[in-house]
Amino acid sequence: MEVPDQRLSAATFEELALPLFEQLYNFAHWLAQDAAEAEDLVQETYVKALRGFSGFQLGTNFRAWMFRILRNTFLTSRTGLKSTVVSDEEIETIPSAAPNPETVLIERANREMVRQGLTELPVPFREILLLCEVEEMSYEEIAQVLTIPVGTVMSRLFRARRALRSLLVEKFKGVQNGV
């Protein structure tokens, strides 16, 4: 039986791209902080990816490619432009507290606290933590999504964790002091 080429390719794209739907939506919503905007971002991502699929390189990580399209779409959206006034070089200089000895703190911090902390983090920190912990991407995949070197992934991740930890320390102290 002959399979028409359009059908085969469309089926391939659908097979690869549809399983990523929920992950992409979650990531989009975290970036945009708004449901309607997240839907627009995901919709646009799929349209762009479908259009660019023929140029998709064999051996490239498909998931990283999709996330990269989504992120670039976000960066050029109105919310994205507003949230990322900092350049990659500037991110590296955002101060973050030294590691806190109260490590058990994170275990005690409840999920809502962690959610709030993530929301308050600058986008570059928020996105790298989500890609690493929620999407469980390797440094290499993250580097592909963010189009930065692996070394930068490591240092930014390190800084992001520090930043979140110090936010949580503040929140946790607030709760303990009955604020």
């Binding site: 939506y25 975290w30 995901v42 999920r111 962690v114 933590l129 989500l130 929620v134 469980e136």
Partner: peptide, 12 residues
């Protein structure tokens, strides 16, 4: 673990 749990938040 906390981020993984808290980060899976939004359902389409």
């Amino acid at each position: 673990r906390s981020i993984a749990a808290a980060g899976k938040r939004y359902q389409p």
